[in-house]
Write a protein that binds this DNA or RNA. Sequence first.
DNA 1: TTTT
DNA 2: TTTT
Lengths: 110, 110, 110, 110
Amino acid sequence: MNSLRNSVRLVGNLGMDPEVKNFDNNKQLVKFSLATNETYKNDKGERVTETQWHNLIAWGSQAKFIGDYLKKGDEVAIEGKLTNKNWVDKDGNKRYMTEVVVNDFIKLKG
Amino acid sequence: MNSLRNSVRLVGNLGMDPEVKNFDNNKQLVKFSLATNETYKNDKGERVTETQWHNLIAWGSQAKFIGDYLKKGDEVAIEGKLTNKNWVDKDGNKRYMTEVVVNDFIKLKG
Amino acid sequence: MNSLRNSVRLVGNLGMDPEVKNFDNNKQLVKFSLATNETYKNDKGERVTETQWHNLIAWGSQAKFIGDYLKKGDEVAIEGKLTNKNWVDKDGNKRYMTEVVVNDFIKLKG
Amino acid sequence: MNSLRNSVRLVGNLGMDPEVKNFDNNKQLVKFSLATNETYKNDKGERVTETQWHNLIAWGSQAKFIGDYLKKGDEVAIEGKLTNKNWVDKDGNKRYMTEVVVNDFIKLKG
DNA sequence: TTTT
DNA sequence: TTTT
């Protein structure tokens, strides 16, 4: 009852090598950024590319697999879940961050 | 070539009545928050609900339609695009915000 | 590596009560038909509804859950996999059938 | 209100060069088959690949673009709509066929 | 064979 | 700030 309620699908390129973190409880986390490019023609008929950068993370065996297998520049398709976290920073400002938690991926090129 | 590269699908409830803004150029923008609820059993076998709050916006005729038709509490399915904007706030801190730009929706209940 | 390669999402109404079959090996299968309705305006500006009927099946605990919980007329969202089977019928004609194997569903109304 | 109610996403390889048909009213139709491969480990721990063959069609500018741009063997991601048609054949048997009407595609490799 |  |  999960991926029907909250599902993100992206096709794009890694902006960095994935960063793997190992925790004491043998859990693994991987983080990386992904760029998606949308191209369209503007009012003047010029071809324009608009890029979105997304924060992606993955846990467990998916994290290990991503860390071993993907690198900067690779093109991937991913399916994940949209999550938001918020906290108060050292200056007392409320901060927000959105992350896509990756459930599955396919390496396409690179 | 767009929704294959960047697509978000959510089923959830509006946390507020949509806020419509009218711009000088006759363009309309609507903003609202949407809660998606995921339920699962934790280690102790207890039923737990985890809620994510998402920022949604829509433009044009979609904005007008949402403003006229949806209200706080309604359950909807939406399809949209994941976008990130960043700016420097008055204290010089870099700030980020993620929004889902709604392309299409279905009202389910409420 | 599965739902990224082959994924169907439908929102529609059950045309029948689900039919549950129990196999000797304790496996369960459920079958039902689902109608999806698309409405649009034709050349004359008339509102037209076009209906597609889909064959859906599910296995295991999902089958049991569907058999217990859903009935004719209910509106559901489903996620599944597109499968094709073919065989030769009693007259020697090659026959085809497409089924959506349901992985997950949400009951919306009804 | 369309792709939320009926949406198919496939990543796979073309089994043939697309066949383009031109109609009198300047409309174009393209047909091709697409194989999706799912790999998993069976009871004996052996890696197994299961292939599904899908019938795909597209209309209009999408048809022309596919005919010009894709060929047998290419890997593509597609988004489309699941449609079913049925008719009575020359022997009086009721026949069914399922087609995915392509709305959008990305060429991945090949 | 569904639903609005 | 929603809903079950």
